[in-house]
């Protein structure tokens, strides 16, 4: 079996990370590495710690022990917004959309660095107008691709569950210069045709921009063909890693899904 650690070009290292919720060990001495420019699939039964891992890498949760290294830099103590600036972008499993903003606005907010975001600079339209216009064009292109463009002026409350997932995804692919995108179940609740399109779009983004992806996905039938590597988790531990097919067929992984 190929150990991911043996890959030379690593973008992110998670070293002996543990995270407790009271007495529950959500992450138990997790060590793994993500190869640069690849799509890594994170699988495991419910409660195995996948989302906690995403939260810990993106900085939403702090860890109790261990360290996280991104491109050779220790980011263990950095707040989420600073990790974003380094290029770590994430989406949420349960969409955290801005309920008062339109679909288009939700997408545009995904792009950071607008010079007009200040209590004084906001007044100076000529400073931010061009940036704003290109952000909106960018956002419309994302909405067009994700089949949401006809809903551009709706509020998130008017969308279906699947559309909310797509909107969540559209925000995370808006980032200015992403290097690592963490997607928490991007295809859950999305119809199979569109789910495949999303996965192939992710692959296109990887090929064109060399972005690394870590994707939590239960729909293995769809996701597995697009992934380069896979990591299997169970009860907060990494139980298998390597080529997707090998991980899925690993007896420990199968056992964990069967409730072992």
């Amino acid at each position: 079996m190929v150990k991911i650690n043996q890959v030379t070009d690593v973008i992110l290292e998670v070293n002996k990370v543990s995270k407790y919720f009271g007495s529950l060990k959500a992450l138990d001495d997790v060590t793994l590495a993500l190869p640069r420019g690849k799509i890594t699939l994170l699988i495991g039964p419910n409660g195995s710690g996948k989302t906690t891992l995403i939260n810990v890498i993106s900085g939403v949760l702090s860890i109790d022990s261990g360290s996280i290294i991104f491109e050779g830099r220790d980011i263990t103590r950095l707040p989420p917004h600073d990790r974003y600036k380094l290029g770590i972008v994430r989406s949420y499993q349960i969409p955290r959309l801005f309920q008062g903003l339109s679909v288009l606005e939700n997408t545009v907010v995904g792009k950071d660095g607008n010079p007009g975001e200040g209590m004084i600079y906001g007044l100076l339209k000529r400073i931010w107008y061009n940036y704003e216009k290109s952000s909106i064009e960018d956002a419309l292109a994302k909405l067009l691709f994700l089949n949401l463009i006809h809903l551009h002026d709706r509020r998130p409350g008017e969308l279906s569950g699947g559309q909310m997932k797509l909107l969540e995804l559209s925000r995370s692919i808006m980032a200015t210069k992403p290097k690592l995108i963490l997607l928490d179940e991007p295809a859950a609740g999305v119809n199979p045709v569109l789910a495949k399109e999303i996965m192939s779009m992710i692959r296109n983004i990887r090929d064109e921009l060399g972005i690394t992806f870590l994707i939590v996905e239960h729909r293995l039938d769809i996701a597995i063909d697009y992934a380069d590597y896979a990591i299997g988790m169970h009860l907060g531990r990494v139980i298998a890693q390597g080529k997707p097919k090998e991980v899925v067929e690993d007896p420990k992984v199968i056992e964990s899904y069967l409730g072992g």
Binding site: S58, V60, P79, P80, H81, Y84, V89, R90, Y92, R96, L97, F98, Q99, G100, L101, E105, N106, V108, V109, G110, D112, N114, G116, E117, G118, M119, Y121, G122, W128, E132, R171, A175
Partner: peptide, 19 residues
């Protein structure tokens, strides 16, 4: 753009830090 970010912060500040 500031007005938009303020409204986003009001709706979900955690999501906004992730951006």
């Amino acid at each position: 753009p500031m007005g938009r970010v303020l409204r986003a912060m009001r709706d979900d500040d955690l999501a906004l830090t992730s951006y």
